[in-house]
Design a binder for these strands. Structure first.
Lengths: 231, 231
DNA sequence: ATTATTAATATGTCGCTACATAATATTGTC
DNA sequence: GACAATATTATGTAGCGACATATTAATAAT
């Protein structure tokens, strides 16, 4: 028998009880101190285990309120989304980047709203293509807030993708991300060299530095693109 | 001036240094003990802060090896994917479920492989439609491993969706999840009541209980479906 | 019976000690 | 110089005490 219970041992035992119905949805769990006594470990060990389960979305924790099994279960999935260049190179393909257009102008109202820009504020509009072994891979449509990154105005975006420059020079503190599907119209079809009407996987991402938006980008991947949870 | 630094204070200071380039990609950070001395707190406080940054994918931690800023930055995004019923009801719509078909049979080789089933093993094949305000919302195609959940064979899947039954009666210990886009063929178009050729958002999920697969499901959402990170 | 106030409580956190362990550096041997 | 063995080290962890705090329960006042 083990000398001491590790926090992972404790977590696994709690999880087993969640799985076998000992603790059912909505149930209140025993106090940390009681679980510690039962399992023969310290309260801090139980707390570390519970932190992990809470981070995984299985339980809710409240001071004085105690621990409760979540009522409405969700699947909490984590994705690691790499730089497109890293993704392409990880496939064993050669990465290339092509700037399609770059101009300073008023973003559409929906973009301005998402980036929390004043309606009169200009942003840098950059459209580009990422290629894998000379074939189009991801088409990107991006708006960059020059208030947050004024230096971007003097970057040669023909030589380096905006994303790579931003990651290197102006990392974000938080981001919003969404996925959806898009039917390829004539423009997407032309740029990605695919038939009109194909189903395309879309990633919309807005990054922030504190309360200020940095960039809003829509990335449209070629047909067949697939993103999976990290394992 | 604050009496004591909290672990969140410490984390925010480290993150600020990650953002402003004090600690650049690939850099090795000072030892936890040195950071603790500098910031006037305990080593365990620094460790708690670092745990958070590591969980967020910003740094790599190794015993003796020290702490390093990740070389290849990724966007680590977490999604909470609710039960379809909860999602529909959260939209203020009325949820309904319709069983389309149910039979026990040999799954296709790709499904058997993904579920790590022997090639001769049968699985329960269930196809169903989830509706929002009587309109099709999500079409699902599911295989269930009767070895892992023999009880499923006696469940009336016309009355309750397989997913809801499984979540209630046989929760999983881990899962694999992937997203992609699909062009609507005649079957999807017919069942979802949309034109052929629409772009559809697809969620593929396999759940596991230990080493045994529970279910593999493909969920195809109506055009316009969008999933976003939790905020 | 209702509302306000106060008390109690279960989790959250900080710091500390001691020990564990994975990884790296140094030393010894051939 | 290469390899093995050993030492060192920076992070990881268990436990403990003390205190903080958000929440719930009990009590007091009306």
């Amino acid at each position: 028998m083990k000398e001491r219970q590790s926090w992972r041992d404790v977590r696994d035992q709690i999880q087993a009880r969640l799985l076998n119905g000992t603790y059912a949805m909505g149930d209140r769990l025993p106090r940390d101190e009681d679980i510690a006594a039962e399992l023969g470990c310290a309260r801090s060990t139980v707390q570390r285990a519970m932190q992990d389960l809470a981070d995984a979305g299985r339980i809710d924790r409240r001071r004085k309120g105690g621990t409760q099994v979540k009522h409405s279960p969700v699947t909490r999935a984590t994705f690691d989304i790499p730089l497109i260049r890293a993704e392409v190179e990880a496939k064993g393909a050669r990465y290339a980047y092509r700037l399609l257009s770059r101009d300073l102008g008023l973003p559409p109202p929906t973009v301005a709203a998402s980036m929390e820009l004043p309606t009169t504020a200009q942003a840098l509009h950059v459209r580009a293509l990422h290629l894998a072994d000379t074939r189009p891979y991801v088409l990107e449509d991006r708006w960059i807030n020059p208030e947050t990154v004024p230096e971007i105005l003097s970057v040669d975006l023909a030589a380096i993708s905006a994303n790579e420059w931003l990651v290197r020079n102006r990392p974000y503190s938080r981001f919003d991300l969404a996925f959806c599907a898009l039917r390829a119209g004539p423009e997407e079809a032309d740029l990605l060299q695919i038939p009109v009407g194909e189903a395309l996987f879309v990633t919309d991402r807005t990054t922030w530095l504190g309360a200020a938006s940095i960039t809003l980008v829509r990335q449209i991947a070629v047909p067949g693109y697939r993103i999976a949870t990290r394992s």
